[in-house]
Design a protein around this nucleic acid. Structure first.
Lengths: 213, 213, 213, 213
DNA sequence: TATGAATGAGCTTTCATTCAT
DNA sequence: CATGAATGAAAGCTCATTCAT
């Protein structure tokens, strides 16, 4: 009966929480954990600062909540890839392109992860939610590699975790460090052309590696 | 005879500046720019806090000085590789292994770069010194790729900058993000064994890519 | 019945702001802008130092708020003089005596103005409030001078602004510089007798000037 | 023989001291005692900061030295007026115009005096030199007033000290407070025309007062 | 559920001054 | 006579957090 019954009391509550989370995500992404300001988060979210503490307890806990959110988001997106419906080479390419595209579309993901790692992931280790979210794509990728090997198109002995990390590496580092790289190489790595070249290069590297000669 | 030249009057000055730089490098590496504390830097360097401002002007400028230092260090180390004395495949492997080993030996390099990028490299852009330090290894790598292609061992069409970034990517990301990755995959990525595997994997990926089938 | 209206929620806020303003006025008057200490202001006002920044933003802005306050005060007092109800000579004498008495009763006004001028009134120029407070007494004084001239008791060609400044000058300088003057002339200029003589002298000078022979 | 022999050792010493005094005078005039920076004084004087302490002991003592200097200067200038050679009205006018002109030419004099007074002249009271410099012009002015009265051109009962202070007041206040006055009256009081008008007005006021009807 | 007022601890930076040569 | 190196104390200001309603 009351399945779809809206709970009027919690409407604004949900909205406030959501607004805080989004504001916090942007603020943490932009300034890092230490550089982020609770005041600015309240301002961005257009809520009273006290409310942040009411809902999330502390700046650190809020940061954790943000991290859990962005992790859940990328897992959800991975889920929709349906890699098993593709041939092994296509699946690997698809995953590689998806990874790049996702980072491009969610630049905050990168700086948030960097912050988490600066603090030695002490936030994540506290979070059972994230550990349970353990990427199911690893299992899938393992299956694909195995099938490819059986089909005679993939080389053998490839560890799914290593490959998954490598795929992420090639996209992540370029975007995460684009400012210093651009400064050092004296060329803008974020023009449309440069990005297309990188995307293509990454696929070449990954497929050049997994494909049997 | 005058080998042991009389200590110049600025001897202690140099020592103080050096001590500050090292302490700052560690502090910034550990806590990021915003999280670093000038007090702690003074304590680590065993100098009066005021002296930091006397020599470096501000926290930001000190950060820049640290960045310039670590960049100079890695450039110096790259210079000693003598890649041109090796066959193209050996040279690429050597560069790849060097990159990994350097990051392993200088973990502070990674977090410092992350901090610099969080702030959109605004520090680096102010530094003509760094821009002039523009990696000469790129030129070398280009030559190697060209020679390998002529020898018929390397595929053609490989951009030296892209390859250089990819080599760095595969090492950097693993180390930079090892905390979150370890948490997510539920296994310690920094054991001796895991590191050896990664080192080997990276070489496989890079050589798998550049070598002609 | 509701005479003793319920304390509005901001009651304490107002009280705190007022306490800060008063404490700041005294501190700035005593030590000048640069010599004033925010810590001391907090102590004098018996509020947390942080609250000063919460309400006033910065030491400079607080100084401006103080200036606006003392200007508003003297304008209010001038308004109550009802000069137009007096004969021209009485009105001029009244204004002159009021000016002297006001400075005597509000010694902080003088040092605050000196501070403002040391900083080239950059605070005041930012304040539209003060500019709008443009002394209406000037208009009144102009009317009085004109009437006196028509009555044949005042000399002609007297500029109201010049006269107003001169009236202020004769009182202000004596009080502002009384310390150096006392030191140089080797006599205490602030005894009751000395003050009475000065008050009388000022009236003589001003009236000796405006009155027709 | 060696009457005019330069003392080489003290040449630079004198020059340094003089440079410091001038730099300090400007710095104190510009920023007040509390706002002045010893570093800036050293910079302005182009001497090592340590030298300031070597010669003057402390910031406070340096300020006193500056004060003594500017007092000596104005006394010297007054001495050259030869007021006794003039008719009483001319002498009074001459002194009035001199006072105005001197303040115009030495704006630092005004802010320095304000600073001294802010600190309740505690510096001056320590200085026997200044007390001994007790303005001899007072004596002269007294004589002039007496002669004028005997001549039947001046009113009687005029106190020389009061008159001297009034002459100074009318010039000093206008210049000292010109920034706030300009802001309030919304007109620039320092244009050439405005200054000429003030100069003339001051003479009118003083002579209007002392001259017998 | 929501909020304006308030705070203690600590931040970066400044400053007059002294040390050592 | 002159100076670069160094410092203790304290300045203005910030920040995450809590109180009171």
């Amino acid at each position: 009966m009351t399945d779809t019954a809206p709970e009027p009391r919690s409407r604004n509550a949900d909205r406030s929480q959501q607004a805080i989370l989004e504001a916090a995500r942007d603020e943490f992404a932009q300034h890092g954990l230490a550089g982020a300001r609770v005041d600015r988060i309240a301002e961005r979210a257009d809520v009273n600062k006290r409310l942040i503490y009411y809902y999330f307890g502390s700046k650190d806990d809020l940061f954790l909540a943000v991290l859990e959110g962005v992790y859940a988001d990328i897992r959800t997106a991975e889920q929709k890839l349906h890699l098993l419906a593709l041939s092994p080479p296509d699946a690997v390419r698809r995953l590689t392109e998806f990874t790049w595209d996702y980072y491009i579309d969610h630049p905050e993901f990168i700086t948030l992860l960097n912050s988490a790692n600066l603090h030695q992931a002490r936030h994540l280790r506290k979070s059972s939610r994230v550990r349970e979210m353990n990427s199911p794509v690893i299992q899938t990728l393992g299956d694909i590699l195995e099938r490819g090997r059986k089909d005679g198109v993939f080389r053998g002995g490839v560890d799914a975790v290593q490959l998954y990390i490598s795929i992420a590496s090639l996209a992540y580092f370029y975007l995460s460090n684009n400012h210093t790289l651009s400064a050092i190489f004296g060329r803008d790595l974020m023009t449309g052309k440069a990005r297309a070249e990188r995307r293509s290069h990454i696929c070449d590297v990954i497929l050049g590696y997994v494909l049997k000669d």
